[in-house]
Design a protein around this nucleic acid. Sequence first.
DNA 1: AGATAAGGTGTAAAAATTACACCATTAAAT
DNA 2: ATTTAATGGTGTAATTTTTACACCTTATCT
Lengths: 228, 228
Amino acid sequence: MEDKLPAFDSAFSIDCVIFGFEAGVLKILLIERNEEPFKDWHALPGSIIKQEESVDDAAERILYELTGLRDLHMEQFHTFGEVHRHPQGRVITVAYYALLRLTGQKELRPVTQFARKAFWHPINDLPKLAFDHSEIFNRSLNKVRRRLSYQPIAFELLPEKFTLTQLQVCYEAILNKKLDKRNFRKKMLSYGFLKPLPEKQKGVSYRAANLYKFDRRKYNKIFQSELS
Amino acid sequence: MEDKLPAFDSAFSIDCVIFGFEAGVLKILLIERNEEPFKDWHALPGSIIKQEESVDDAAERILYELTGLRDLHMEQFHTFGEVHRHPQGRVITVAYYALLRLTGQKELRPVTQFARKAFWHPINDLPKLAFDHSEIFNRSLNKVRRRLSYQPIAFELLPEKFTLTQLQVCYEAILNKKLDKRNFRKKMLSYGFLKPLPEKQKGVSYRAANLYKFDRRKYNKIFQSELS
DNA sequence: AGATAAGGTGTAAAAATTACACCATTAAAT
DNA sequence: ATTTAATGGTGTAATTTTTACACCTTATCT
């Protein structure tokens, strides 16, 4: 496929691994490419950095153009610089990840023609991805797991009001292992940044669980002072 | 100074933060630049990535060319991508760090003309650095500190045979805080990768301390299995 | 012999982590 | 009305890890 394409010199690009959590399943955002190389393949949202924008700004723009998503807090985690990772020329890519709350049913609507569509896909069943995107994804998942071990970032994935079980399932999905219910709750509550609400889960056909809210002020206090 | 220089389009570069430990003091490797921009300034060893080399390979080559040092294990930690970080044009830089054992008196000898010389400088007294290199250094130090909290990487800095006090001083230099002697020893020995040698320190005018050796096999076992 | 400087050691309290099982509540089904 | 199915919610004891803390020992130098 790549033989017919023009070669180019070198470029910097961005690739984004956006995690979402839905129905107890951890997913990432993929696009269907509408362009060679790897036309029709699934891929991470990614594109070329422009001359006049910072790398961080490029990440925001590119994610928006390919998926319609805006204003996430993305974090850079690695730069992939093998010579032949792109068939047409030298492309070094800076990879970002973000955790995204899926409530509010944000619509996925690419605003450029590079992506035919954008969609969520469970991480346990990923298709073959374009370029070295599988490797990029693997590395992002390691990063998120490691990060979760020192910062309870799972909140970023949950709706504003959530149950402790939802929180635990989210942890388990990220870490890919079962946790003990009592110990998990004890620990989470001991942090002090979970506010119990005078409100219960609705629409379940079993005992409704209490809802909690994440208190970002307290959270920030704890995890800023921890750096010292 | 930059007004007279030709502008260029865009480039990818490498900057290296190489840590060394000497006489109880943590140092990094700086060069004196022999080229505009920032001619005569102190800077991190860094230069432009070539078209036909991977980013990791570029890091090794560049460090060698500017300092004469080879075969260190460098690790990428961040990519700096602000638009105006270089006065002449767009330069995105991938930053690496490494910890280097200073025994054997490795000579520092730049093999290109870009650096007039290379030298070690204590981290507590750094001069103003070229470009955004101070920021790059700060970030590298944070990275090393954080890493030290889950992997005892301080060994990389010590000679083959070392005393427990040397090890502790090295930790203290990285973390910039005092540690308790008894607790520190208890913990280090409990890992099981410190081999006591039937040998004592020489040439000190007080009671000689026992020497230890770092057992990399056991270390790797422990810190590989830890990832699961 | 005495001074100096660092080496080397143990214990108790506190805190964090782990393992583990049963009753309560709700809605749906009968 | 009763039963069933599904999840919610809770406590304790054992173990491990972390912390705080002080004194005698050894080697060298004078």
